[in-house]
Structures are given as structure tokens and as C-alpha cells.
Simulated assay, not measured.
Amino acid sequence: MTGLVSRFALIAVLALSACDDNPPAKPAPAKTVQKSPAPTPVVPAPPAVAAASPIAQTINAATFDPAASDPDAHRNLLIRVQTLLDRAHFSPGVIDGRDGTNLTLAIKAFQASRDLPATGEIDKALVDTLTAADGGAVLVDYQITAQDVAGPFSPELPKEDYEAMAQLPAMNYHTPLEMLAERFHMDEALLQLLNPGVDFGAAGTNIVVTAAGADTLDRKVDRIEIDKALGQVRAFDKDGVELAVYPATVGSTERPAPSGEWAVRTLAPAPTYTYDPSRLTFGKPKAKLTIKAGPNNPVGSTWIDLTKDTYGIHGTPDPKLVNKRASHGCVRLTNWDAKELGSAVNKGAKVIFMGAEARVS
């Protein structure tokens, strides 16, 4: 999603509207960037001991078997690989136990960083390298707390009913299931599959969740590459070491993202969203509207403001759609990836857009 950024104090909540839908002016071409190999990541301790359920134990022990044909075994390995990539900061997006473009991109990036053939496929060398660096359980037990189910929760509304959204006091999660899935970087369907018949609104219930990454980086981000063709964001430190890779929705052929080199202006960790019909070509409202902050805000829970006016890197209320649908020009990440990047990015960090959009609006 995209947004017009108002002038604001650093301590204020940022007000946004959708990104300018006019093609941006073309600045000077981006400089050639040398990619340095990433070091072995610092992996946070899992939040609990390995889950006791039989399916969790099977997934925690999943290995690569080239002769395997069982779809459940393949799904189990995908869950393990996705979670380990997430913890290594090579984000597969939503952990869902499925093959897909975002997983392929994450695997390729990880393989390249470890001097493995960048095939994008799961093989023995990939699994061995991931597990040698991080042998911890990928599924753990978690007890739902009273705070988890207390809310407040917001009603679910049609995605572009901006007028109804503007009437809400906040854009909170809709259900405890949605909140828990996002906390553990999971698809809601996978969380339900691993916990059949569970009432996610019942405090005291034990569930199985992924031991996902910690949403933090151990060094500051000084340069960001945004690959419009691949739908990928890459973060580097001041020495050119690659710290993290994320799947992203980047503009569209109708409403392209900028080109060339820009910079990070500031960070808004709880942005509001302003719909301004005088600047936009999508949506139906006739008057200017402000939608309150929250994880289901149209720009998610984090906004990284760029020096290209009206453009930013931000979260989304629909994490499973990242790099699957077009945006209105800005760079859309999952909420947790946007939070991780925002927590580590330096003000003034270079932001380099490269390639051209391949996705049609």
C-alpha cells in the first residue's frame, strides 16, 4: 500500500495517504553495489521447549530425502526450512508449509550468501547448512494468555471500505487467531492445522507454534536494495554485509515505484493512514479520510519514510499476499519484516530501487 506523508514531529504519529499514483521523476541511476557474504546469524533462543505433540516432533526432526514422495513429509520439511530461514533473516514471508515464489527467493538468497549453488531448491546441502548453524526446535509449545484474548479486537471490513475504517477507534487484529498467527509469522491455516479443534480465544489453552525470528537485527542497516523485478528487499550494514532479505510487493506496471537512489527520512512505528481523493485514482470516498493506527491499517504497523515524497516501505494487513499482488507504488512487507527492518535502519540510509516492475495492477 502507499502513502502521502505529512510533515510531522519525530515524537508524533505519522499521518499517511496512498502513494502518489503518478509515475515518479527519474533520478540518477543507482550506483553499482558489491554484495558481501553474510556471516552466520545470531539466532535467538526459542520461546519455549520443543513441542510435545507427535506432529511437532516429526516436523522438528524433518530431513531432506530425495526419494520421499509423501506430501505430508514434504510439508513438514517446508515448515522446518521456512522457520530456519526466518530465524536466519532470509524471510520466506508467511510460514505456511507450502512451496512458492517467496520461499524460492529466500532459499536462493541464503544459498548465495553461503557459497552454495543458488538453485532456489531444497536439497541436502541447504538443509545441512541451515541446521548446522541452528539446530533448535522449529515448533514449540505456547500457552494462550488472558492478555492474548482480551483484545480489543476490531471488526473485519471490506479491504477498500475506507469510510467504514475511518469510523473505527483503531485498526486492531480481528481475532486472537489472527493475532497469534502474526506473532509467530504463521499463516492462520497452518496454525489451525497444527492445532486441530483448538479454541484460540480460550486463555490457558496450550498450542503449537513456530519458534520464529526475533524481529531484530544485530547491526544497523545502512543501505537497502529494492529489487522491483524480483519483489525483494535486501538490507546491508555500513561494511556492505548482507543482514537480511525480505519478500516485498513493489509497485506495479500501472503505478510504478521510484527508480534510482533515495534515502530513509524517518520511521513511524504506528502510522495512521490518510485517504486523499484529490491525489488518488483508486477507492470511492469523495472526502479526505484518516484511518487510525494498528496492524490492520492499510499500511500495517510500521512506516519507513523515504526522501522521495509520498513513498515508503511499510507493513500490510494481508501478509500472505506479499509479493503476490500489486501495490500503488510503495514497498509492502509483512508487518514483522517491516518492524525488523525499521528497528535497525539508520536515518539517512541509502535506498536503491533497481529493475522494473513485472506485476500488472
Score class of each variant (00 low, 15 high):
residue 274 T to R: 15
residue 326 A to W: 09
residue 217 L to S: 05
residue 270 A to C: 09
residue 281 T to Y: 15
residue 255 R to L: 13
residue 270 A to P: 04
residue 284 K to Y: 14
residue 290 T to Q: 07
residue 289 L to C: 06
residue 193 L to C: 08
residue 224 I to S: 01
residue 232 Q to G: 07
residue 219 R to D: 13
residue 247 P to M: 05
residue 322 V to D: 04
residue 328 H to G: 14
residue 212 A to I: 04
residue 241 V to Q: 13
residue 278 S to F: 15
residue 318 D to H: 13
residue 318 D to W: 12
residue 315 G to E: 00
residue 277 P to Y: 06
residue 293 A to G: 12
residue 289 L to G: 01
residue 272 T to G: 13
residue 262 W to R: 03
residue 228 K to Q: 11
residue 236 F to V: 00
residue 193 L to P: 06
residue 233 V to M: 06
residue 294 G to K: 03
residue 291 I to H: 00
residue 262 W to F: 14
residue 308 K to V: 12
residue 327 S to F: 00
residue 252 S to K: 07
residue 292 K to W: 05
residue 270 A to I: 07
residue 288 K to H: 12
residue 257 A to F: 10
residue 199 D to W: 06
residue 212 A to E: 05
residue 193 L to K: 15
residue 321 L to S: 12
residue 246 Y to E: 02
residue 233 V to C: 03
residue 247 P to C: 05
residue 259 S to K: 09
residue 234 R to K: 14
residue 240 G to M: 14
residue 255 R to W: 12
residue 287 A to M: 11
residue 209 V to A: 00
residue 253 T to E: 07
residue 320 K to C: 05
residue 320 K to P: 07
residue 255 R to G: 09
residue 199 D to E: 08
residue 234 R to T: 15
residue 217 L to I: 10
residue 207 I to G: 01
residue 254 E to H: 10
residue 214 A to H: 08
residue 196 P to K: 05
residue 230 L to C: 10
residue 229 A to K: 08
residue 213 G to A: 15
residue 204 G to T: 08
residue 300 G to E: 00
residue 316 T to H: 01
residue 322 V to C: 05
residue 213 G to W: 02
residue 328 H to Q: 13
residue 257 A to Q: 09
residue 322 V to S: 01
residue 313 I to P: 01
residue 303 W to K: 07
residue 247 P to E: 05
residue 227 D to L: 03
residue 256 P to G: 03
residue 252 S to P: 09
residue 214 A to Q: 10
residue 214 A to E: 10
residue 217 L to V: 10
residue 227 D to W: 04
residue 283 G to C: 08
residue 208 V to A: 02
residue 212 A to Y: 02
residue 199 D to Q: 09
residue 195 N to W: 12
residue 229 A to V: 06
residue 314 H to N: 13
residue 303 W to C: 05
residue 207 I to R: 02
residue 233 V to A: 02
residue 250 V to S: 00
residue 312 G to F: 09
residue 204 G to E: 06
residue 296 N to R: 08
residue 288 K to S: 15
residue 321 L to M: 11
residue 260 G to I: 02
residue 237 D to H: 07
residue 286 K to Q: 15
residue 255 R to C: 12
residue 293 A to P: 09
residue 202 A to L: 15
residue 270 A to Y: 07
residue 286 K to T: 15
residue 246 Y to R: 03
residue 214 A to V: 08
residue 209 V to I: 08
residue 273 Y to S: 03
residue 225 E to D: 12
residue 195 N to F: 12
residue 289 L to F: 08
residue 314 H to S: 05
residue 290 T to G: 03
residue 266 T to I: 10
residue 192 Q to N: 10
residue 269 P to F: 10
residue 245 V to E: 01
residue 307 T to A: 05
residue 316 T to P: 01
residue 205 T to M: 09
residue 320 K to R: 14
residue 243 L to G: 00
residue 297 N to R: 04
residue 261 E to Q: 14
residue 310 T to Q: 06
residue 283 G to P: 03
residue 216 T to M: 13
residue 297 N to W: 00
residue 241 V to W: 10
residue 276 D to G: 06
residue 326 A to C: 08
residue 314 H to W: 06
residue 205 T to A: 11
residue 198 V to A: 07
residue 323 N to P: 04
residue 203 A to T: 06
residue 326 A to Y: 11
residue 218 D to K: 14
residue 216 T to K: 12
